[in-house]
């Protein structure tokens, strides 16, 4: 009995170029160990990307497992037509979008019953207010700085955020991001440009002064 096996001669471009594609092909053939290797390799960044998308660590880990589960369920139909990470983040984008939509619906209901409920994606002016509140009194250490950055990322629209995360943390090209998010490269270019502009504006006080958050806080106190 014989089985088909990819070889040097018939291996596709992606199979040759991307070790993750080769692992995924082993998963297709039934290798649990190959799948485990993929989970090990991608879990950290996947959870990080999802955490930025849904703003909740526990939910991010649950969603990451959902992403891996979908990858595994799709194994028998898997054909390498792109880098593995492109495919992985296409699924991630869909899973995160669904989750954000659901969460957004829940929060819309909350808004009716509880006026203090926040929108899933916070508008920039709210963000700006938060920032001014943070500056004089609360920004004291690295943790606070991290919070400022996280909030700045949260203030971006979901698509800007996703494009930014894939570009910044996954090092994807515009073409790969476009493929993952099912957009044109021109749209990706525009999304990233806007994301950069928004982040620059929100984080400008910490860039232009060249001072730490603590110093900014002290100056603010002295001025008042």
């Amino acid at each position: 009995m014989s089985v088909s096996e990819s070889s040097l001669q018939k291996a596709s471009k992606y199979e040759l170029l991307d070790p993750d594609v080769r692992l995924m092909l082993q998963v297709r053939e039934g290798s649990a160990a190959a799948f485990e290797a993929l989970v090990e390799k991608h879990q950290k960044r996947l959870v990080m990307v999802l955490e930025h998308l849904v703003s909740d660590r526990t939910q991010a880990e649950d969603l990451a497992q959902d992403v891996f589960l979908r990858v595994y369920r799709a194994r028998e139909r898997y054909v390498p037509t792109a880098k593995f990470s492109t495919w992985l983040y296409t699924i991630t984008h869909n899973v995160a979008s669904n989750s954000i939509r659901k969460s957004s619906r829940r929060k819309e209901i909350n808004l009716v019953t509880s006026p203090s409920g926040s929108m899933p994606v916070r508008p920039l002016d709210t963000m700006a207010k938060d920032k001014s509140n943070l500056m004089p009194t609360r920004l004291a250490d690295q943790k606070e700085m991290e919070k400022v950055i996280r909030d700045a990322i949260q203030s971006l629209g979901p698509r800007q955020r996703m494009a930014m995360l894939l570009s910044k943390y996954e090092g994807m090209s515009y073409n790969e991001i476009a493929e993952s998010m099912e957009l044109t490269t021109q749209a990706v270019k525009s999304l990233l440009s806007r994301a950069r502009g928004n982040l620059k504006e929100l984080l400008a006080p910490y860039l232009n002064s060249g001072k730490s958050a603590r110093e900014l806080e002290r100056e603010e106190g002295e001025a008042s």
Binding site: A32, V39, E40, R45, Q65, E146, K168, L199, K200, L207
Partner: peptide, 30 residues
């Protein structure tokens, strides 16, 4: 200014998922 903003994002630490993440994911799959 744009470059500095982009570099500032690098200061965010990347946390490891919980120690049992791989195990529970594999169990989920099985």
């Amino acid at each position: 200014s744009l470059q500095k903003t982009w570099d500032l994002l690098d200061t965010l630490p990347v946390q490891e998922p919980g120690g049992s993440f791989t195990k529970t994911t594999m169990e989920l799959i099985v």
